[in-house]
Structures are given as structure tokens and as C-alpha cells.
Design a binder for these strands. Structure first.
Lengths: 126, 126, 126, 126
DNA sequence: GTGGTCTAGACCACG
DNA sequence: GTGGTCTAGACCACG
């Protein structure tokens, strides 16, 4: 269910959080679903329990998961909503990249065309 | 000429390299121009000399600068070309972000519109 | 009769004890009344029997309940008295919070007003 | 500057965060002040570096501290503001306690009188 | 030197 | 069994 890239510059706990969010958006993980236990996921992925804990705690703070002591971690009811709301912050990152492309004389048409292409590929994947 | 944001998450040496590239693309730094000396820039910006060195060395490796022992660092003749070519790698980063926005149910129209807006603002700045 | 909030940070056994105390103060549970059996309450609330046991044992230690081997748990004769006496310890917790509000520049008037408001609401509920 | 109570039920990282907040509210730690380094504070308090890190990271997430890689942690410019704003959440905790006192037949007058007493003591401390 | 991430592993509270 | 906290200590990036 989860795949970790140890060579990535992205911290493992961020990889876990991001993949969890994708599973929720894809409807594979649903509200009130139980997450794998810290120890279980730790041994399955060969990742230290502390690292799993960090990922889960971060998601709790964001309102995507909730913990029940002695029971486990669960997807919150409004997890999808929270994730979608957070995604809007990504427009800022998009701004930065587009501006850098502009600086490098990459024209507007070429960028729009490129994004258009992404959506066409995305539609084919469905 | 250079402005460092100590609060940024981006490493100072990356900020320096990126600003140098922008100055070259803007035609302010031209091929064969001499870069400020490591010591000089270090004291002007109150930045550790190692950090300046790192930025210069990185740019040398990319072919944007060249060092002449005992003389200093100079902008290469084809620096602009190299930078523009490198910029194309940023399409990958753009892909990642656009896909994440798509996952979060942000529609194509909204993204294209947003980018369109960026270009309009960019034109006004000119 | 009892309602457990699994999402609460408060341990279930504390929730049970607190609700029992409220039922006693409200006169719903009276001295010498029999408490539900551990097994019974456990299945009704879908709570681990150990948790019920813990709540009952704690209340025995405080003098609110008493156990009769093979018979069950009963409200003690002076349970109400014990609970009211214990409540005075809550003044300490109140002190801590009020001091923290003071530190954060929340004025005396605002605090007193707030508490006044609570009592007015409380009276309406009657 | 910091005092840790190892016997307290409150986690060390919370004790550290709370004491930092108090120092800021008291004007002892001011905006842009540098915090002790993780390693330094760790050895001074005989507390594991990870625990200090946790406290600092939490405060970063709340907007009270900011970290500069390779430089250290600094109090943010609007730290005091953030702390005061957060303090308002404590009214909820106050509600809970006051209601519990009410349940235990502690009258409004007695509570208001008690708080009044706290403020008089507070004034004497000045 | 300074923060950031991670592993290994212990101990506790809760259920 | 499950999460929560903590110690010990390593290794890396950054300055």
C-alpha cells in the first residue's frame, strides 16, 4: 500500500504523509478507516517506528488523521476536505516555477500547451 | 546586486546561484564579466565564504561560470544558453505540481486561467 | 446511562468515573444503589472490561464505590460528600488557567465577566 | 533559564514550550532573539537533543520560533501576538472546570471571590 | 557549530 | 496490542 524511496531527498515521513493523502483523495482510504498500526507499518516497510509516528502525528496536526490511545490512528471524517483545502497552497509553488520558465524565455503558449498535454494524458489514464 | 533571504528555506548558495542566473538572463551580467571575489561578496552580504564558494563551484560545474586560478570567477561565453537549456528541466517540477492539483479536484480551466493571470501581471511589470 | 467519547483525549476510565460522579451529584445514582456489572457495562458500551474495572477500582479507592465480592459494586453511603470534597482540588487547576490568562494580558474583568456568563447560561438550563 | 520537572506528567517538550512562551510574554525573550542551540540546551538540561528538537519544531509550527539552517532558532517577530491569541483557547478549559465546580455545589460567589483573590496576589507580586 | 532526519530500542499509559 | 515519550547516538546538509 505504501512505497518508500530511501534515496529520495524527501524525508520518509513526508513520503508517507503524501501517499496517505493520495490514497484518501483516490477514495482508497475512506473517512473513519483505520490506519495500519505504527508497529505494523514499521516492520512492513522496514522503517523505524519513530518515523511512522512522525508522519502520523503530522497528519493528526493537519486534521487528516486522529489517534485513539490504545486503539490506533483513523482517517478523520473531513480528511478529504482538509487535503483539498491545503492543495490550494500549491498555486504558490506553481507561480514560482512558471515565473522561472518565463525568465528563461519559455513562452506562455508553450507552457499552456504543456499543461494541456498533461490533462489529455490524465484523461486517458481514467 | 545580490539579496539574501536568511529566513528562506532555500539554502543561501542556491539563492546566490539562482540570482546570478537571473542577472545573466536579464543581460546585467554578460559573458566574460568578472564575478565579485569570494571574499568581497562574503563581507558585503555577511555570508560565510564557504557558502559563496559553494555557489560559485556549483555554477562552474553547470558551465555558467569558469574560474581562473588567482584571477577570479568569470561568466562563461555560453552561460545564457546553458541556463535556458537547464530551465527545461523545470517542466518536470511543473508536472508534479499540476498533477497534485488535479488530484485535489482543481480543474484544468482554473489552472490555465491562473497561469494566464501570471503572464498578464508579468506584462504589466515590463 | 453512560456515554463514551472515543475521540476524546480523556481516558475512557476517567470518562466513566466522571460521569458516575455526575450521576451521583444529580441524585440519579443514590447511596447503596448497585452499579451495572463490569461485564454488562462492558458489552453495552463496547468497551474493554479492563477499562470498566479500572474505573470502578479507582472509584473504590476514592470511597465513592464499594465492592462486595460476588455481588457487584455499590455506591457508598457518603459518596456525594466525598465527591464534593474532592471538587475543591479543582480550584488548583482553576488557578493555573487563570494565571495563564493573566500572563497573556487577559484582564480580570474579562475573566469574571466570562464566568458570570457561564452561570447565567447554567441557570437557564435548569 | 529553563527548568525541567522530570516527575511531571507533562512531557518535557511541552514544559520547554510553555516556559519559552512565558519568557516571551514576560519580555525576557524578545523578537529575533536567538534561542539556545539544540545541543547546548540538551547538555545544560541533561535532556536528549531529540526532545529539545521536538519542542523547537512544535513552536516553529505554531509560529513562535523560526529556524535558520546552520544558524539556529530565533523568536519570530510576532511571537507574542501568536501566544496571546492562542491563550484565548484556554477559556474553554476554564469553562470545563467552572462547570465541574458548579456541579459540586460550589457557588458562583465562592468562585468569583477565589479568582478575585488570585488577582490581588498577582498585584502584590509586581 | 547548527539544525534535520533517522535508526534502535526502552518504558509507560490505555484498552 | 496500540500509541506516546524519551534516551542514545549516527549521519547529513548548511554555514
Amino acid at each position: 500500500m505504501f512505497q518508500i524511496d530511501l534515496m529520495s531527498r524527501k524525508p520518509i515521513y513526508e513520503q508517507l504523509a503524501q501517499q496517505t493523502e493520495k490514497l484518501i483523495l483516490a477514495g482508497i482510504l475512506k473517512p473513519l478507516d483505520k490506519m495500519p498500526s505504527v508497529r505494523n507499518l514499521s516492520s512492513n516497510l522496514s522503517v523505524n517506528p519513530n518515523t511512522i509516528q512522525r508522519a502520523y502525528t503530522d497528519m493528526c496536526n493537519k486534521g487528516i488523521l486522529t489517534s485513539m490511545m490504545g486503539k490506533g490512528y483513523y482517517v478523520t471524517e473531513n480528511a478529504e476536505e482538509v487535503i483539498k483545502h491545503d492543495a490550494l497552497k500549491k498555486f504558490d509553488a506553481l507561480d514560482v516555477i512558471v515565473k522561472e520558465l518565463m525568465m528563461a524565455s519559455v513562452g506562455k503558449d508553450r507552457i499552456l500547451e504543456h499543461i494541456d498535454g498533461l490533462f489529455k494524458k490524465g484523461e486517458l489514464e481514467k
